[in-house]
Design a protein around this nucleic acid. Structure first.
Length: 449
DNA sequence: GCGATCAGCT
DNA sequence: CACAGCTGATCGC
């Protein structure tokens, strides 16, 4: 069947807004998950968490809010959708869905689906820490949700699916930030953040230092929507700690600020942060981040870099006299991804992140934790499993890298060329596709693409 | 003029 | 390179 015809008959879409489906699911409100969604949306109902629904009109003013449906966390919800089967054109099928806290940014959830197509878990972006109270609650919620099912396909946030990505818990990283601030008692502090996310970091700083945090006016509105009314301010006179948009955070900004007041910048990020001036060849300050700043070590040369250890990812870095980097990440690090897969024990899985320069198919490192390799651990699920296996062949995988799929088709139409290796290898470098959204769609035949 | 899309940049 | 985002140019309406 031609791709277009199949797209017309999509069942449900997750973080995908092109094509037609019967129901749409939004994991969270970061822009790379909302490409194609706009204030004029009218294609169908959108299911999301309560917090995301609350934030929705802020990102999409004048959006028709009657199209939003809130899914409460940890509870199964049933949807009745038109059967995609041609032989039962007027009948309905039931799809069950549960939203589970993804511990990413505010409002972010994973979606667990059950239906004729089997059991699918779509993580969206997620962080899977082990120690915090919130993490333990999340773990319990997921195990409760999975107790009767085997996940046939896990759609995984593989942003840091590479053993060189190791960093501490957000609580530990937040304390590193506090320590930096405390060690600069006379300095102004600026911290680079995005329009959503890392609120917990700012709360931690505020509580630890008993200080208000400055944010820009729109961010203050977001903070108020999230229920934080006392901690944040837009008056610079009230605090020396300011959270600023990441795009306005640069060496040039810091140097400019320092002509007026002594100021340091702190960049919370799971990624090495390299500025233009560093790429131009300026020497980093100190030596902590030298490997990050050496571009050649990060540019892919056939994927050989993926196993290189990087000892600097877990600690505070300083590559400019005014700028510190702290490994505070809202995505799971490598070992957390591993823990999560061991917990879920999916039959199969696919990475949802295609934009990384060093995209790693999670099956490369963790395929051994899936499917037949888990026969012993899965013995308790044996009957359930067999039952599923008979139905699941209809579920196929579609990734941005598969040839001939809807993605490839649309990219060709835009006159772009897919470069680099095919996903048949464990590493794909496809910079031409760097801007495509992270989404998936369940098709009439149970296919997800 | 407006929204959607894209290039370029941080 | 880019966790996610902004700005400005361009195109079609």
């Amino acid at each position: 069947m031609p791709p277009l015809r199949r797209m017309e008959k999509g069942l449900i879409s997750v973080d995908r807004w092109t094509g037609q489906s019967q129901a749409y699911f939004l994991t969270h409100l970061h822009s790379d998950h909302t490409q194609g969604l706009s204030s004029t949306w009218a294609k169908g109902l959108i299911f999301c968490s309560r917090l995301t629904a609350k934030l929705f009109p802020f990102k999409f003013p004048n959006f028709n809010l009657s199209l939003l449906r809130v899914l409460d966390l940890g509870a199964w919800h049933s949807l009745s959708l038109l059967s995609p089967s041609p032989s039962a054109s007027q009948s309905f099928i039931t799809v069950e869905v549960m939203a589970i806290d993804a511990h990413h940014c505010s409002g972010a959830v994973m979606f667990l689906f059950r239906g004729e197509f089997g059991c699918l878990l779509f993580t969206g972006d997620f962080r899977w820490e082990t120690a915090s109270k919130r993490a333990k609650i999340g773990r319990t919620m997921l195990l409760d949700a999975l107790k009767d099912d085997v996940v046939d396909i896990l759609y995984l946030d593989n942003t840091y699916c590479n053993p060189s990505y190791i960093f501490p818990s957000r609580e530990a990283a937040a304390q590193q930030v506090v320590d930096i601030i405390v060690s600069h008692p006379e300095h102004d502090i600026i911290i680079g953040i995005d329009t959503l996310g890392k609120e917990d970091l700012l709360l931690h700083i505020s509580r630890a230092l008993k200080i208000k945090i400055w944010v820009w006016p729109e961010r203050l509105r977001t903070m108020h929507l999230l229920g934080y009314h006392e901690i944040f301010t837009t008056k610079t006179s009230l605090t020396r700690v300011r959270a600023v948009p990441r795009y306005s955070f640069s060496i040039e900004t810091l140097e400019g600020l320092n002509t007026m007041r002594a100021t340091i910048g702190i960049m919370p990020s799971g990624l090495p942060w390299v500025t233009k001036s560093l790429e131009r060849g300026d020497k980093p300050f100190g030596s902590l981040l030298t490997s990050h700043c050496n571009k050649s070590k990060w540019s892919g040369n056939g994927g050989n870099h993926i196993d290189k250890p990087n000892a600097n990812l877990g600690s505070v870095g300083r590559f400019h006299k005014y700028i510190y980097t702290v490994p505070y990440s809202d995505h799971s690090c490598f070992t957390e991804i591993e823990d999560f897969i061991k917990l879920v024990q999916p039959t199969s899985m696919k990475g949802i992140v295609s934009s990384s320069s060093c995209y790693v198919d999670p099956m490369y490192y963790f395929g051994c934790l899936c499917g037949a390799n888990q026969a012993v651990q899965r013995s308790l699920h044996k009957h359930k499993r067999k039952e599923r296996d008979e139905r699941v062949p209809a579920v196929c995988l579609r990734t941005p890298f598969s040839s001939g799929g809807a993605f490839a088709e649309s990219e060709r139409k835009r006159g772009r060329t897919v470069k680099g290796k095919h996903s048949g290898t464990h590493v794909s470098r496809i910079s031409a596709l760097r801007r495509i959204q992270r989404g998936a769609k369940i098709m009439e035949d149970g296919c997800l693409n």
